[in-house]
Protein backbone atom coordinates (compact mmCIF):
# COMPACT_ATOMS: atom_id res chain seq x y z
CA UNK A 1 0.00 0.00 0.00
CA UNK A 2 1.05 3.48 -0.71
CA UNK A 3 2.26 4.70 2.65
CA UNK A 4 1.90 8.35 1.65
CA UNK A 5 -1.85 7.89 1.54
CA UNK A 6 -2.24 6.61 5.10
CA UNK A 7 -3.06 9.96 6.75
CA UNK A 8 -5.42 10.85 3.91
CA UNK A 9 -7.22 7.55 4.40
CA UNK A 10 -7.52 8.18 8.11
CA UNK A 11 -9.05 11.57 7.48
CA UNK A 12 -11.56 10.11 5.03
CA UNK A 13 -12.37 7.38 7.54
CA UNK A 14 -12.93 9.89 10.30
CA UNK A 15 -15.24 12.00 8.16
CA UNK A 16 -17.31 9.06 6.99
CA UNK A 17 -17.52 7.56 10.47
CA UNK A 18 -18.65 10.89 11.85
CA UNK A 19 -21.23 11.10 9.09
CA UNK A 20 -22.71 7.71 9.92
CA UNK A 21 -22.74 8.54 13.62
CA UNK A 22 -24.64 11.69 12.74
CA UNK A 23 -27.09 9.66 10.70
CA UNK A 24 -27.72 7.48 13.77
CA UNK A 25 -28.68 10.72 15.48
CA UNK A 26 -30.86 11.68 12.54
CA UNK A 27 -32.84 8.49 13.12
CA UNK A 28 -33.62 9.77 16.60
CA UNK A 29 -34.09 13.32 15.34
CA UNK A 30 -36.93 11.99 13.20
CA UNK A 31 -38.91 11.48 16.41
CA UNK A 32 -39.16 15.17 17.40
CA UNK A 33 -39.24 16.17 13.72
CA UNK A 34 -42.25 13.95 13.27
CA UNK A 35 -44.04 15.59 16.15
CA UNK A 36 -43.13 19.03 14.86
CA UNK A 37 -44.54 17.96 11.53
CA UNK A 38 -47.63 16.63 13.24
CA UNK A 39 -48.00 19.81 15.27
CA UNK A 40 -47.74 21.98 12.18
CA UNK A 41 -50.30 19.92 10.35
CA UNK A 42 -52.24 19.17 13.51
CA UNK A 43 -51.95 15.40 13.09
CA UNK A 44 -52.15 13.17 16.16
CA UNK A 45 -52.08 16.22 18.36
CA UNK A 46 -52.29 15.53 22.04
CA UNK A 47 -51.42 18.58 24.05
CA UNK A 48 -52.83 22.00 24.61
CA UNK A 49 -53.15 24.10 21.52
CA UNK A 50 -51.44 27.40 22.09
CA UNK A 51 -52.41 28.98 18.82
CA UNK A 52 -54.99 31.80 18.91
CA UNK A 53 -58.49 30.74 18.09
CA UNK A 54 -60.67 32.38 15.49
CA UNK A 55 -64.18 32.86 16.86
CA UNK A 56 -65.76 34.48 13.83
CA UNK A 57 -69.01 32.57 13.51
CA UNK A 58 -69.74 31.10 10.11
CA UNK A 59 -73.48 30.35 10.19
CA UNK A 60 -73.50 29.53 6.51
CA UNK A 61 -72.69 25.88 7.05
CA UNK A 62 -72.98 23.06 9.54
CA UNK A 63 -70.14 20.69 10.19
CA UNK A 64 -71.00 17.28 11.47
CA UNK A 65 -68.84 16.30 14.44
CA UNK A 66 -68.81 12.65 15.51
CA UNK A 67 -67.41 11.41 18.78
CA UNK A 68 -65.97 8.00 19.42
CA UNK A 69 -64.44 6.45 22.50
CA UNK A 70 -62.15 3.45 23.05
CA UNK A 71 -60.27 1.95 25.94
CA UNK A 72 -57.05 0.02 25.58
CA UNK A 73 -56.48 -2.66 28.22
CA UNK A 74 -58.32 -0.62 30.85
CA UNK A 75 -61.19 -1.79 33.06
CA UNK A 76 -63.19 1.28 32.11
CA UNK A 77 -66.37 1.92 30.24
CA UNK A 78 -65.92 5.02 28.20
CA UNK A 79 -68.50 6.63 25.94
CA UNK A 80 -69.45 9.99 24.47
CA UNK A 81 -72.66 11.29 26.01
CA UNK A 82 -73.59 12.70 22.62
CA UNK A 83 -72.34 10.65 19.70
CA UNK A 84 -72.65 13.46 17.17
CA UNK A 85 -73.28 17.18 16.94
CA UNK A 86 -73.89 19.65 14.17
CA UNK A 87 -71.85 22.81 14.72
CA UNK A 88 -71.19 26.05 12.89
CA UNK A 89 -67.53 26.83 12.40
CA UNK A 90 -66.45 29.39 14.96
CA UNK A 91 -69.12 28.30 17.42
CA UNK A 92 -67.89 27.50 20.95
CA UNK A 93 -69.28 24.09 21.83
CA UNK A 94 -69.28 21.89 24.88
CA UNK A 95 -69.92 18.18 25.09
CA UNK A 96 -69.30 15.45 27.63
CA UNK A 97 -67.76 12.03 27.83
CA UNK A 98 -68.49 9.49 30.54
CA UNK A 99 -66.08 7.02 32.13
CA UNK A 100 -66.96 4.28 34.56
CA UNK A 101 -64.20 2.49 36.43
CA UNK A 102 -65.30 -1.13 36.74
CA UNK A 103 -62.37 -2.24 38.85
CA UNK A 104 -62.28 -2.34 42.60
CA UNK A 105 -59.31 -0.03 42.82
CA UNK A 106 -58.23 3.36 41.59
CA UNK A 107 -56.98 3.43 38.02
CA UNK A 108 -55.20 6.19 36.12
CA UNK A 109 -55.50 6.64 32.40
CA UNK A 110 -54.50 9.04 29.67
CA UNK A 111 -56.72 9.78 26.69
CA UNK A 112 -55.15 10.14 23.26
CA UNK A 113 -57.21 11.91 20.62
CA UNK A 114 -57.22 11.07 16.94
CA UNK A 115 -59.04 12.70 14.08
CA UNK A 116 -60.55 11.52 10.88
CA UNK A 117 -59.92 12.81 8.30
CA UNK A 118 -56.44 13.49 9.74
CA UNK A 119 -56.26 16.92 8.08
CA UNK A 120 -59.21 18.02 10.22
CA UNK A 121 -56.99 18.08 13.31
CA UNK A 122 -55.53 21.48 12.57
CA UNK A 123 -59.00 23.04 12.39
CA UNK A 124 -60.38 21.39 15.50
CA UNK A 125 -59.37 23.56 18.45
CA UNK A 126 -59.79 22.08 21.88
CA UNK A 127 -60.16 24.83 24.47
CA UNK A 128 -60.52 22.51 27.41
CA UNK A 129 -60.18 18.77 27.34
CA UNK A 130 -59.92 15.87 29.74
CA UNK A 131 -57.14 14.64 27.48
CA UNK A 132 -54.88 17.49 28.56
CA UNK A 133 -54.03 15.56 31.71
CA UNK A 134 -54.18 12.13 33.26
CA UNK A 135 -57.47 11.03 34.77
CA UNK A 136 -57.65 9.02 37.95
CA UNK A 137 -60.85 7.25 38.90
CA UNK A 138 -61.53 5.70 42.28
CA UNK A 139 -62.97 2.20 42.47
CA UNK A 140 -66.36 2.13 40.78
CA UNK A 141 -66.36 5.88 40.19
CA UNK A 142 -68.48 7.35 37.42
CA UNK A 143 -67.18 10.57 35.98
CA UNK A 144 -68.45 12.94 33.35
CA UNK A 145 -65.77 15.00 31.67
CA UNK A 146 -66.25 18.07 29.50
CA UNK A 147 -64.71 18.86 26.16
CA UNK A 148 -64.87 22.45 24.95
CA UNK A 149 -63.96 23.10 21.38
CA UNK A 150 -64.24 25.34 18.37
CA UNK A 151 -64.08 24.38 14.72
CA UNK A 152 -61.88 26.88 12.92
CA UNK A 153 -63.86 28.77 10.24
CA UNK A 154 -60.87 28.22 7.96
CA UNK A 155 -62.01 24.61 7.67
CA UNK A 156 -62.09 23.71 3.97
CA UNK A 157 -65.59 23.54 2.53
CA UNK A 158 -65.29 19.93 1.41
CA UNK A 159 -64.73 18.75 4.96
CA UNK A 160 -68.29 18.12 6.06
CA UNK A 161 -67.66 15.52 8.73
CA UNK A 162 -65.02 15.32 11.43
CA UNK A 163 -64.65 12.36 13.73
CA UNK A 164 -62.86 12.80 17.01
CA UNK A 165 -61.87 9.55 18.59
CA UNK A 166 -60.36 9.12 22.03
CA UNK A 167 -58.53 6.09 23.29
CA UNK A 168 -57.79 5.76 26.99
CA UNK A 169 -54.53 4.03 27.85
CA UNK A 170 -53.57 2.86 31.29
CA UNK A 171 -50.77 4.85 32.86
CA UNK A 172 -48.49 2.22 34.30
CA UNK A 173 -46.67 2.73 37.56
CA UNK A 174 -44.62 5.89 37.59
CA UNK A 175 -44.33 6.07 33.83
CA UNK A 176 -45.76 9.49 33.28
CA UNK A 177 -47.61 9.93 30.04
CA UNK A 178 -46.48 13.29 28.87
CA UNK A 179 -49.22 15.45 27.59
CA UNK A 180 -47.07 18.43 26.70
CA UNK A 181 -45.46 17.29 23.51
CA UNK A 182 -46.20 14.40 21.29
CA UNK A 183 -42.66 13.11 21.21
CA UNK A 184 -41.66 9.76 22.53
CA UNK A 185 -41.25 10.13 26.22
CA UNK A 186 -38.07 9.22 27.94
Amino acid sequence: MNIALRPANRRTFAKLALFSALMFGVGYALVPLYSVFCAVTGLNQIGVDRQPVNLQLDTGRVVNIEFDANVHHLPWKFRPVQTHLGVHPGELMQTEFEIINTRNEAVTGQAIPSYSPPEAAQYFKKISCFCFSKQTLAAGQVQRMPLVFVVDPALPKEMGTITLSYTFFEVEGNAVANSGDGAGKS
Binding site: E66, D68, N70, H84, M159, G160, T161
Partner: peptide
Protein backbone atom coordinates in the same frame (compact mmCIF):
# COMPACT_ATOMS: atom_id res chain seq x y z
CA UNK B 1 -65.32 10.42 3.24
CA UNK B 2 -67.61 13.28 4.24
CA UNK B 3 -71.43 13.21 4.37
CA UNK B 4 -71.76 9.51 4.93
CA UNK B 5 -75.16 7.91 5.60
CA UNK B 6 -73.86 5.40 8.09
CA UNK B 7 -70.66 5.44 10.12
CA UNK B 8 -69.29 2.15 11.38
CA UNK B 9 -66.26 1.76 13.59
CA UNK B 10 -64.15 -1.27 12.85
CA UNK B 11 -61.83 -2.40 15.63
CA UNK B 12 -59.10 -4.91 14.91
CA UNK B 13 -58.41 -7.46 17.64
CA UNK B 14 -55.94 -10.31 17.61
CA UNK B 15 -57.60 -12.06 15.67
CA UNK B 16 -61.09 -10.91 14.96
CA UNK B 17 -62.98 -7.79 14.01
CA UNK B 18 -65.34 -5.71 16.13
CA UNK B 19 -68.08 -3.68 14.44
CA UNK B 20 -69.73 -0.75 16.09
CA UNK B 21 -72.52 1.15 14.29
CA UNK B 22 -71.80 4.69 15.46
CA UNK B 23 -74.19 6.77 13.46
Amino acid sequence: SSNADITIKVTGYQWKWGYDYLK
